[in-house]
Design a binder for these strands. Structure first.
Lengths: 224, 224
DNA sequence: CCTGTGAAGATTGTCAACAATCCGGAGATG
DNA sequence: CATCTCCGGATTGTTGACAATCTTCACAGG
């Protein structure tokens, strides 16, 4: 747009940034389970770097709240008890409501709603095929897209962390989708509310959706 | 509460954590102005530590979004243009609305509203005395208290960063309180809305307050 | 049996030195 | 005069080593 040939500035990434992403991924998919100690020497050897860059990556995760640091003891993947899970969903509601509200009032509301409809359709497809893994992926993709479309760097960055935590406790609790059709319907209603632009409905849909998801998780936690 | 003698776990802090706070303070009050390069060697010497812990602290600030990292070039205090300031206030609205909503629906709503009334009273006192510095402090204390009272660790952590950014651009723009009385009144209305528990009013009051604050900042930016 | 002592082992916290990269200017070349 | 090349200085990125701390276990004493 602004530059003559429309080039993006070259984007190279620091080592600690790469390691941060890799560790975050590991926490998300359960390869680094909640409560596990993160050994500096061991992980540094795995990544093939020295402890310096690895420690820097750790500090990022500490700041993000995914890792807890105990002085002279080590770093541990944060464990989520029920209160934490409730707080997680409270915060997700805050962020996603704001994102949806912003999107619904922006120029790209119609286009955004269309994108979200497509995501919901992908969920429906996965649900129909009985592929619960694909359904979960599509579910996350929907929420990721929702916040992305709002175009707010801060909301997006905060949401990233929250989604890691969400996925973390879903894998930990082995939560299964009980009513896939209901899930799809909830997401579709959110997309439609954005298309229509009714704030009140939008807020209610998101709030209910989060409440449902939270209830499922808490139930799974009590049973499992 | 839960433990027999009610002791808290001993809380010692890591060096990088201390340095992070000190740097954050420096960014907030303008001692490290926006766009400034943060020299590792220089700062390490000032703190009397080696570059290791200092770099760890830097990574935390990068993750927080207060500092921007350019590979092999250095670290720079993030600059806030108008779009960024708008995003900042959009996000503050999201977080503080959620906090106020949570507080208003909690058991401690009445007590919380009282605490906020006291904060607003402190603002009124500062405004009456014409002490704009004290007014700004009381203003921040009000918002800090509001989010603290919600009792959500995630909202609180996110809000912390946002307040640093807010203060950063206020000091950068030398924003002065134009209508101190109006300011106090806006805060009082928020406290009362929490006491009453009317969600709709609460949302509107916070949204308007943020919009007002944003407008003042943007105007100051265009003039200054 | 419970408590206190002490050393071994492992892990984290810190540091100073080395390697790689970038920026600026002097000088050569056309 | 413009451009290219090269070098010195400075800064960041990374490493391996050292110091401090914590945990675990065995063992002696009451």
């Amino acid at each position: 747009m602004s530059s003559p040939a429309g080039f993006q500035p070259v984007h190279r990434e620091s080592t600690s940034s790469l390691i941060t992403r890799a560790l975050r991924e590991g926490i998300m998919n359960g390869r680094l389970p909640a409560g596990a100690q993160l050994s500096e020497a061991g992980l540094a050897a795995e990544f093939g770097v020295s402890r310096g860059p690895l420690r820097e990556a750790m500090q990022r995760l500490v700041q993000e709240g995914l890792v807890r640091s105990e002085l002279n003891r080590g770093l541990f993947v944060k464990e989520l008890d029920e209160a934490e899970i409730r707080d997680l969903y409270l915060t997700r509601t805050a962020i996603e409501t704001a994102a949806a509200y912003t999107l619904a009032h922006s120029e790209g509301a119609a286009a955004g709603a269309q994108r979200l409809r497509e995501r919901a359709a992908a969920m429906a497809e996965a649900a129909a095929a009985g592929d619960l893994n694909a359904l979960a992926d599509a579910d996350f993709a929907f929420h990721e897209e929702l916040v992305s479309l709002a175009g707010s760097p801060r909301l997006h960055r905060m949401h990233e962390t929250l989604m890691v935590e969400t996925r973390m406790c879903m894998t930990a609790l082995q939560e299964t989708y009980f009513d896939p059709e209901d899930q799809v319907a909830e997401h579709s209603r959110i997309a439609e509310a954005i298309a229509v632009g009714d704030d009140e409905v939008l807020r209610r849909e998101i709030e209910e959706h989060m409440q449902e998801a939270l209830d499922r998780l808490v139930r799974a936690g009590h049973q499992g």
